[in-house]
């Protein structure tokens, strides 16, 4: 698939799959809160799906523990191309407060390529929406670059 075709496929609504890679659940409940009436992310076409095979975006929360690493990799490969990875929360970006732990394999970008980091412990729902929008913008800029190049 060429890049232009690939990008065209993603310019519509983004479906996200959420994987918990050793999170404390704070980010997870905020992701869920993002979907509920107050923040209502679905009005932007952002939707949480139940299987990686339907997803465009992989939302990863948590520090990436040793035991879950394999599973995160597997899920990453199950998401069909083209895909974006968004790390939600400080732990996934930098290991956060769990720096010295023996059970950590993270941060997430040591295992899978990451496109957007959303800092915060946990990030507010607005920040999560903003992060997904950033991912969108990344696609748009890639699109422009691609158009300019061809």
């Amino acid at each position: 698939m060429n890049t232009a075709k690939m990008l065209k496929k993603m310019s519509r609504s983004l479906w996200a799959f959420h994987i918990n890679a050793g999170s404390c659940n704070a980010c997870d409940i905020e992701i869920l809160a993002t979907l509920t009436p107050r923040y209502d992310a679905e009005r932007f076409g952002i939707k949480l799906v139940g299987t990686p095979r339907h997803a465009d975006i992989l939302l990863v929360t948590g520090t990436l523990t040793e035991k879950i690493r394999e599973n995160v990799l597997r899920v990453y490969h199950q998401v069909p191309d083209p895909k974006l990875v968004v790390v939600v929360g400080g732990c996934g970006s930098t290991k956060g407060v769990f720096q010295e732990s023996y059970a950590m394999a993270g941060p997430v970008d040591t295992c899978i390529p990451v496109d957007v980091y959303i800092p915060g412990c946990p990030p507010r729902p607005e920040a999560i929406i903003y992060g997904v929008v950033k991912a969108w913008l990344k696609i748009e800029s890639l699109e422009k670059d691609n158009a300019a190049a061809s």
Binding site: E66, K67, K95, Q99, E100, Y102, M104
Partner: peptide, 25 residues
């Protein structure tokens, strides 16, 4: 504990205090 932890490492023993240090990026 994860499977890759050496079997002789028992994290809560005093000997292993600070054993994970030097992590981070």
């Amino acid at each position: 504990t994860p499977g890759n932890l050496p079997p002789e490492m028992k994290p809560m023993l005093e000997t292993y205090r600070g054993a994970g240090r030097g992590g981070g990026r």
